[in-house]
Write a protein that binds this DNA or RNA. Structure first.
Ligand SMILES: [Mn+2]
Ligand SMILES: [Mn+2]
Ligand SMILES: [Zn+2]
Ligand SMILES: [Zn+2]
Lengths: 148, 148
DNA sequence: AGATTATTGATAATCGTTTTCATTTTCGCA
DNA sequence: TGCGAAAATGAAAACGATTATCAATAATCT
């Protein structure tokens, strides 16, 4: 086969059941820790390459942190959106909102664009973090894109 | 006044009526070119600082390019979404889709999250670019987030 | 096995962004 | 209007995630 790595499974399982998006370096050091002894973990280069491949193949999702850093996460195969906690980074997977379809159709028709796609990024404050953050946090921190 | 720059206006007008998102460096060199002579343009540092401030104040919108680079654009004040051409980067502003409200409400109720916000990123191929790109472009290029 | 090709790891290079800090400008106020 | 404090600026260095390089190693094929 071509374009594979013997670390594919390992990287995927490091991502498995993770409640947050992780950076390449986090994943790399996680792989290093998860070793009893004997075998050596893959190099950082290899983890970067593996994540690239898995992302291109659709095995994992990619987002950009505020500072541009790439973060990865293993996702369900079914279409879904992400709801991120703005405080702790926890991710909730939201079933795909089919209600968006008519909206997209209308947009496509009016704009003349074709091959329409959309990515809906949801954010909020998770139940855990909600307790510690009393009320009306600085509205300027919510970011300009938080339109709703 | 506090936290201003005498270049605020200049940066804003460099962004004015632009059909694409621009990087800080693009804006910086645009400011340099737009000078007949005499006065010197602001330094790159100052442009970075000015863009930060304007973004924090909601005067401009920020997105991340695929490689993480920050791109800026002057936006209307009314809530809206962005439709980007995946080929040439042209931006169409889409009036805010109020149809999303019930979707968000449902998500918020089911997830227990509060302070819900969303950013809807639309993408497609603009009429101009559509002519040159026959059909069914490599579907893997559309990105994992293109869920619709 | 021997030749060929792909993968790996260590290191250097890249490049957008941030930090630092000395210098200049602006502001508050006598 | 002149002086001291505070803010803004520019030049350069530092930073840090990502990418490129390339020699060494491992896998594959005949
Ligand atoms: Mn997901
Ligand atoms: Mn906009
Ligand atoms: Zn949280
Ligand atoms: Zn286009």
């Amino acid at each position: 086969m071509r374009g594979t790595s013997k670390y594919d499974r390992e990287v995927l399982s490091a991502l498995e059941c993770d409640e947050r998006f992780r950076s390449c370096q986090e994943i790399h050091s996680r792989l290093a820790e998860a070793r009893g002894g004997g075998s050596r973990p893959p190099s950082l280069s290899t983890v970067y390459r593996t994540l690239h491949r898995l992302a291109r193949q659709g095995e994992i999702d990619t987002i950009h942190a505020e500072d541009g850093e790439r973060l990865y996460r293993r996702c369900e195969t079914s279409p879904h959106h992400h709801l991120l906690c703005r405080v702790c980074g926890r991710v909730e997977e939201i079933p795909h909102a089919w209600e968006l379809r008519p909206v997209l159709d209308r947009v496509g028709y009016q704009s003349g664009f074709s091959e329409l796609g959309c990515s809906l990024q949801l954010s909020g404050v998770c139940p855990d973090c909600g307790r510690s953050v009393p009320t009306g946090e600085d509205p300027e921190e919510r970011g300009a894109d938080a339109v709703l």
